[in-house]
Simulated assay, not measured.
Amino acid sequence: MKKVLLLLSVLFLTISYGQEVKQIPQINVNGEGKVKVIPDQATIAVTVETKGNNAKDVKKQNDQKIEAVLKFIKKMNLAPADFKTQRVALNPQYDYEKKKHNYNATQTIEILLRDLSKYDELMEGLVDEGINRINTVIFQSSKLAQYQTEARKLAMKEAKLKAEDYVSVLGQKVGRAMTISDNSQTFYPQPVYSAMKTMERSDADAPRETLALGEINITANVSVSFILE
Rank of each mutant, 00 (worst) to 15 (best):
P80N: 13
A159Q: 09
Q146C: 04
H101M: 12
Q107E: 15
V169A: 15
V137T: 13
G125P: 01
Y166M: 12
E164I: 07
V174M: 11
P92G: 04
E158D: 15
N132F: 07
N135T: 11
D165N: 15
P191D: 04
K162G: 07
A163P: 09
A151P: 05
P189V: 08
L154H: 07
Y188S: 08
A151C: 09
P191K: 07
N91I: 12
E124I: 06
Q148I: 08
K157M: 14
A155W: 05
N77E: 15
E129A: 02
D95V: 03
T106C: 01
D128K: 06
L113G: 03
G125W: 02
K173N: 14
K162V: 06
K160W: 08
T179G: 00
K173Y: 11
F139G: 04
V192M: 06
P191F: 02
T106S: 15
K153P: 00
E164Q: 15
Y188E: 08
P191T: 04
N183W: 05
F83L: 00
K143A: 10
K98N: 12
P191I: 02
N104H: 09
I131C: 03
Q185T: 12
Q93W: 04
T149W: 08
A177S: 15
Q86F: 10
G130R: 01
V127N: 04
